[in-house]
Design a protein around this nucleic acid. Structure first.
Length: 399
DNA sequence: AGTCCACAGGAAGGGCAGGCGA
DNA sequence: TCGCCTGCCCTTCCTGTGGACT
């Protein structure tokens, strides 16, 4: 007990590092967004007609992860909503949906059900025909006599899953409504995405386009500095910590989210070690920890079958470097037999392998060996620490 | 030049769960 | 309770393919 008490008293005795930890998370909405003034102004100008009852153009926003797309659209959306409550303005509601959120807005049905709910009408989460859900949404929206600014984040994953008909329907929605107007903001990090769309939808949705370029290291430093001033007790950061986080994140592709994560995790590590300053070494540890956590969490969330496939891949990779689909399927079959798991078909395993690649846990490459067929060559490119932990995890699961 | 391997990956559809209204 | 709807996971069947081998 004494040991526990020691930890607690020591923790209390330590000077705190954080004033406001939230300021370093992605859910935090800062008052200003450095280096995005142009995008904010452009977007505001495009959306402003909504305040006078007009229909603003639909907007398409491109940019890689962590370039401020979501933040800027939410910020402008909220501001528009607030201003629209003022005198003489036409009431507007900004609704943000993320299509990658499982069970929320990843299908046409769920998106519409979620939107109806935003306007106070509950729709069962399955069961109704889709056209009926459309009707419910139309009627609910029209009866509220509000304009809707619909921000659809990761719109490419919605289209990939459900086809582009939903966008066609949404862009035509205004013809069905008499009291309300709908404008769309589509956000994607897939630059080639709009080229895949039906030309009708392309012209309807891409009335305006905004590009969010990646941040460079100096810009990332500014962002980190402004957040750090809110988050930390002054003098907590060792010289060069911000610069290091910015440089590491700039190497990826100018991802501000990554930079903020690095800084936050580095500080949390310092805090846990009962240190009063965040040092450069903490950033190194943070870098490794973020990778590890991401992989472990992803694998834990996978269904058993997918874990079995990964386990097979890891077993094979330990023995030889040439891991390919056929071999994985064989080992997988043995694992299934040992663990009373019903084996899936090779077709399905092929999809599961592709999925693991998508998650970034393995890397696959399709090659042709001529006479000896075409196959996927699978490699695991994780650091030794991550790999070891992953092996332990899978070993525990398939004990 | 033709064959053939070992798969990739598209299309269609089965079966189940969760949920509706009648 | 029944018929119907959607989403999800999966199977079955199929066509496509790069290049070593004959």
């Amino acid at each position: 007990m004494e040991a526990v008490q020691n930890i607690f008293t020591k923790f209390l005795e330590n000077k705190p590092i954080f004033v406001n930890r939230e300021a370093l998370t992605i859910s935090f909405t800062p008052e200003s967004v450095p280096h995005r003034e142009k995008q904010i102004n452009d977007l505001s100008r495009i959306l402003a007609p909504a305040l006078k009852g007009g229909k603003p153009s639909n907007v398409f926003i491109y940019g890689k992860t962590g370039t401020g797309k979501t933040l800027v659209s939410r910020l402008v959306g909220t501001e528009l909503e607030r201003t629209s409550r003022g005198l003489g303005a036409s009431p507007t509601k900004a609704v943000y949906v993320n299509c990658k959120m499982k069970k929320a807005a990843d299908t046409e049905y769920r998106l519409l059900a979620g939107l109806s709910k935003e306007f106070g009408k509950n729709v069962p989460f399955t069961g109704l025909p889709t056209d009926q859900v459309y009707q419910i949404f139309f009627n609910t929206l029209d009866s509220t006599k509000q304009n809707l600014l619909l921000i659809i984040d990761e719109i490419d994953s919605l289209i990939e899953k459900t086809g582009d008909e939903i966008l066609y329907n949404l862009t035509r929605i205004n013809q069905e409504l008499s009291n309300s107007r709908v404008s769309l903001i589509g956000i994607t990090n897939n630059l080639g995405f709009i080229e895949m769309l039906d030309p009708r939808i392309k012209s309807a949705l891409g009335e305006e386009e905004l590009i969010f370029p990646p941040y460079n290291a100096l810009q990332l430093q500014d962002i980190l500095k402004s957040r750090a001033s809110l988050a930390f007790v002054s003098g907590t950061l060792e010289n060069g910590v911000i610069e290091k986080c910015a440089a590491l994140a700039a190497q990826e592709h100018g991802d501000a989210r990554r930079a903020l994560d690095l800084l936050r995790v580095a500080a949390e590590i310092a805090e846990r070690n009962a240190e009063e300053t965040v040092r450069l070494a903490h950033v190194d540890v943070a870098q490794g920890k973020i990778d590890l956590d991401r992989v472990i969490e992803t694998v834990k969330a996978q269904p058993r079958q997918s874990q079995a496939v990964l386990y097979s891949i890891m077993q094979l990779a330990d023995k030889n470097s040439n891991v390919q689909t056929g071999g994985v399927f064989e080992v997988y079959h043995n694992i299934c037999a040992q663990h009373a798991l019903k084996p899936l078909t090779q077709r399905r395993i092929s999809d599961l392998i592709a999925e693991l690649d998508l998650f970034g846990i393995i890397t696959t490459k399709i090659i042709s060996r001529g006479r000896y067929g075409r196959t996927r060559i699978i490699t695991i490119n994780l650091s030794d620490t991550v790999r070891k932990r992953l092996k332990n995890l899978l070993y525990e699961i398939f004990l």
